[in-house]
Simulated assay, not measured.
Amino acid sequence: MRESIRLGHFAGIRVGLNVSVLVIVLILVVGLSFGRFPQAYPDYATWAYIVAGVASAILLLASLLAHELAHAVVAQRNGIDVEGITLWLLGGVARLRDEPRTAGADLRIAVVGPVTSLVVGAIFAVAAMLAAAVSAPDLLFGTFAYLAGINAILAVFNLIPAAPLDGGRVLRAFLWWRGGDRTEAAVTAARAGRLFGYFLIALGFIQFVAGLGFGGLWLVLIGFFVVSAASAEEQQAHVNAALHGVRVGDVMTPDPMVVNATATVQDLIDDVVLTHRHSTYPLIENGRLAGLVTLNRVRATPPEQRSTLRLTDIACPPEEVPSARPDDPLPELLPRMAGCTDGRAVVVDEDDHVIGLITASDIARALQMADLRGTHPYPPPHGADMTTRHRHRTWPS
């Protein structure tokens, strides 16, 4: 899930919003300000209901952020890098760069989210009781009570043992600890998630057809998301198992053509694109990675601007380019191969010089070759160490 609006850093972790979160904020504000609150707490001015609705929506987003931050912080404490957090239409996503290495770490990272939601819900419940004790306006009490209830519901819902919910992670950790096979545990949790998603779709459809309101459509939407995410997790589990023991250097395309970042788009087209069969161009400046340009980005540039725009103007910035060392495990790189690089990653040496590329074709070939490894899922290292700097072609010189 890509971020559209960057909020900054919390606890050292980058946080952003996807534009879809504005939809849920609008729905919450309208539903609370003109529906729930006026019905439960009449005789207030319209502006009071709107203020309560906006405050509830903002505090709910803060609650979701606390949930995801808890996941991210515990992941970091267990040695896992966190790329960032994105809040979106159906909640939040903490993007972890690696997978937990033990069942215990998997359990700790999973369970801390629902626990945090319960704690946040308890805080709002205490605030509601204090508001009642001091005879504060009942609309203020209702706002705190709503937030307490919704956080409790989120905690309970997330503990359902079905991936990609936190409960599915707890189930995976338990099965991993019990059976010792992480792949089998992940597949079981993902299949449980898919069944749960189908249940939500069926339940939502029945509610809608029975005329019980449009809430059924939300269940259908959530169900489709759960089914899609669970299927993706099962596929990812199989891919990780097939590529276990494979290093980045084993599958990369070495000696890529790198391009000086100061060149213009038209220069790249004339001297490289039309004369070489490449579709990915790492940019370098002072010998280091300065971004990445793909053929799709070049084609998307307006023709009248190509002679003046520099490659850095259209490139994926270096901090968003997935990079790895040759000895890094390939499965740990795969989750990061998304975003603005169109599924590409750059391989660098110990001095951060570009020595290779990994594309979707390289991954596909690695998966095809996995079948030839027989039943040995952990082949010994082969080939050169691949940590020395490779010669690469640079344009222009």
Rank of each mutant, 00 (worst) to 15 (best):
A190Y: 10
A192M: 12
R194F: 14
R194L: 13
F196A: 10
G197W: 01
Y198T: 07
F199P: 01
L200N: 02
A202H: 03
A202R: 02
A202Q: 04
L203I: 06
L203S: 12
G204M: 07
Q207C: 04
Q207E: 05
F208C: 01
F208T: 13
F208H: 03
G211A: 10
G215Q: 11
G215D: 09
G216N: 03
G216Y: 04
V220A: 02
I222E: 00
I222N: 04
I222F: 14
I222C: 03
G223T: 05
G223A: 08
F224C: 07
F224E: 04
F224P: 00
F224S: 11
F224V: 15
V226K: 01
V227G: 10
V227K: 05
S228E: 04
A229T: 13
A229S: 15
A229H: 11
A230E: 12
A230N: 12
S231I: 12
S231N: 14
A232C: 11
A232T: 08
E233V: 08
E233T: 14
Q235W: 12
Q235R: 15
H238V: 15
V239W: 13
V239N: 11
N240T: 15
A242Y: 11
L243N: 08
H244Q: 10
G245K: 03
G245H: 05
V246I: 15
R247A: 14
R247E: 11
G249C: 07
D250G: 06
D250M: 05
M252W: 01
T253P: 00
P254G: 06
D255K: 12
P256V: 01
M257A: 07
V258Y: 03
V258N: 03
V259A: 02
N260A: 12
N260H: 10
T262G: 11
A263L: 08
V265W: 06
V265D: 01
Q266M: 11
D267R: 08
L268H: 06
L268D: 07
I269L: 11
D270K: 09
D271G: 15
D271V: 03
V273F: 03
T275G: 04
H276P: 00
H276C: 02
R277D: 14
R277Q: 10
S279I: 01
S279D: 08
S279C: 00
S279M: 00
P282C: 09
